[in-house]
Design a protein around this nucleic acid. Structure first.
Lengths: 215, 215
DNA sequence: ATCTTAACATACCAATTGGTATCTTGTAAA
DNA sequence: TTTACAAGATACCAATTGGTATGTTAAGAT
């Protein structure tokens, strides 16, 4: 199973305790993440989550007042951090952020197993399913997207300072475009299910990025 | 309410008939389209659809054997045609297809009412919700996407023949990129809900298209 | 050692779901 | 005018849903 490093699934557990509310909550979020990632929010029942987390429904509702509350926590605590870890933090390793964006995307594509590939992007999935149906979900998901865009923008400005990106380029606009490309690519792969299309989209984005790069 | 011209909603009805199975079926598909567009497939019950179509559940199941069958018919009969009408056919009116792609997208964005804007793209919504959950849905949705890509590719080749697009550009790859940009933009707007972002994404795509255009 | 509280389990509930069995009735063909 | 069948209505069903009320027990504080 793919590791999303930001998830502290079943932490080392120095002492084996029969009751560990912090670990239990994390476990619920972990199970919920995968179930919802695979099947969508509505397709997953509280029973499913509780069962696969080795708990009863009563325990679940002790940690989360409603099913929606779990979804909100998932966005706030898991997805937002995941965005940072997958798409923003790695850019620090690149002297040239434009190259970093392209290389990081390629790396993710190449390393992602076939099954996970066809599941798309956890964040985008939730956006499409929940945004127009629940305003609280939308706000929180919007927050995660905004974090993503802002993070990219920050690195694009760094690129401008270091002379990799044309000064006249609107960093915010480009950041929006980059994020949209990521989500669009992951969205399309869900129906197409062909890694080549993913590479094709990556190539196009790379080409675009080099067109705004300083000669 | 926005008109999706491909939908034959409540046709002229020369003679007022109390029973008109063709119209009834179309009515069901029409209602189902909007309900599913607004709320997602799982969020809509057969009861909802039947009721809003002025029918009983029994009547619904007379026309469609299962709820899934309705969804399949929706993709095959409604969404695929919609894609052609909205994104492919209009390109015929443009001497330069590259300009057509950009102008058509802009036109759609400008004409789309605020409410509909935040609902995203009907096809993309369904892709994200159903593709990884139901293989038949995925195949049919994939078919619709493929129709879209192939349509754009055809026009891009026309652009190459007429000298608007560089000969060395891979038309298929560019078509995939264009479609992905459309779906990505509509997907992102669902959470962001800001027409400016839409215009920003459109501007970026336009810029990209002009970068592959012959001087 | 006891007490208290939170962590979890058990057992239930009303509402909703997709689906079916069975009925009435409109309508086109004969 | 009759007839045959499809179009649609009515009434029901088992399964599942999110959620609750109430029980039990582990474990840190005193």
């Amino acid at each position: 199973m793919l590791k999303w490093s930001c998830m502290s699934r079943s932490r080392p557990a120095i002492k084996k305790r029969t009751r560990d509310p912090v670990a239990t909550r994390a476990q619920i979020l972990d199970v919920a993440f995968w179930e919802i990632y695979r099947n969508g929010f509505h397709h997953v029942s509280v029973n499913d989550i509780a069962e696969k987390a080795g708990l009863t429904k009563g325990a679940f509702f002790h940690h989360f007042p409603t099913k929606e509350a779990l979804g909100y926590a998932l966005v706030d605590e898991v997805l937002t951090r995941m965005v940072l870890e997958r798409w923003i933090t790695p850019l620090n390793d690149y002297e040239n952020p434009l190259e970093g964006i392209s290389a990081n995307l390629k790396k993710i594509i190449d390393e992602m197993p076939e099954e996970t590939l066809s599941l798309g992007c956890p964040l985008n999935n939730l956006v499409q399913e929940m945004s127009s149906v629940d305003p609280i979900f939308r706000d929180k998901l919007h927050g995660a997207i905004e974090t993503w865009i802002a993070g990219v923008e920050k690195h694009l400005k760094r690129a401008q300072q270091r002379g990799y990106l044309k000064k006249e380029t609107n960093a915010r606009r480009l950041a929006e475009f980059v994020v949209m490309n990521h989500e669009g690519a992951f969205g399309m792969i869900k129906s197409v299910r062909d890694r080549r299309v993913f590479r094709s989209l990556h190539a196009s984005l790379k080409e675009y990025l080099s067109s705004v790069q300083t000669a």
